[in-house]
Design a protein around this nucleic acid. Structure first.
Lengths: 140, 140
DNA sequence: CCTTGAAGCTACAGTGGCTGTAGATCGTAT
DNA sequence: ATACGATCTACAGCCACTGTAGCTTCAAGG
């Protein structure tokens, strides 16, 4: 087991050095060993865990959810149901956000169209349309 | 022009009292008149502006963009091009986020499927799949 | 007019997930 | 031995609020 400096971990995972220390403070990474001078030295297990965290973050899990997923890795018999629930909750959340964003998009497209090509000199209808929630087709 | 209290403004617009004061601090709302006792009193112009802000926030504009849109309301000749640019930038941003979320969703669905129906006792494949970025089809 | 209770006031800390800074120390290659 | 980059701690700042504490003011009922 080789010892990685915090910078080496950062380069390997793409997670910034300050962020790694932040994760440690949040309890997502264990207190690593230190050199005599007090610098952090990591083993491969920590590298793996940090990769896990980085990937889960990219998938949009928040740090609390990730902490829960990490805990599940240590208790295999309870893991399946809980891990799936967390992942499925996240899927529901994502679908929800996609739906909302799609409503926003068509609303904004409508707003821009009300004015496109209108000449200068009159007040811009985009600004009026933004002010006027009544005109919105869907809720948001 | 009737005088609205901050609470009346809040009820009419759905914006919380504390948030109204925050907007004032940010310069999005003018310093309102005050009663002898120091309480804020608003006219209809402020009500309209707050409605505008609330709606724009619901459409996902950040406060800087909203400040810019408000400034444009006061300079009609410059408004069209700039307002459209801001709105169109927002549309591009939204489409981008939708696309990214859709990639995330299919990735997560894939992750959950790798393990669904697997029996207890073995390590959960959802956790392994989350750890393993290599397996991802698209980038994120 | 007086009381009461809701509404308002200021100022500041906390949220999440980092990022950036200052000023010091450490590790390693030459 | 020295130089220079990497790392250290501690803390402030980001966004858009939200919540708290400890006051004061307003408006309606008696």
């Amino acid at each position: 087991m080789q010892a990685h400096s915090i910078g080496a971990l950062s380069r390997r995972t793409g997670v910034k050095v300050t962020t790694i220390r932040y994760y440690e403070g949040r309890g997502l990474l264990p207190d690593p060993g230190r050199t005599d001078g007090g610098q952090r030295r990591y083993g491969d297990a920590e590298l793996d865990r940090l990769s896990f965290i980085a990937h889960a973050r990219q998938l949009g899990f928040d740090l609390d959810a990730i902490a829960e997923l990490i805990a599940l890795q240590e208790t295999p018999h309870a893991a399946h149901g809980n891990a799936h629930r967390i992942a499925k909750d996240r899927i529901v959340e994502i679908r929800d956000r996609i739906a909302r964003l799609q409503r926003l998009e068509s609303e904004l497209v409508r707003v821009v169209k009300t004015c496109d090509g209108q000449s200068d000199g009159q007040p811009c209808r985009v600004l009026q349309a933004l002010a006027d929630h009544q005109a919105c087709e869907g809720e948001h």
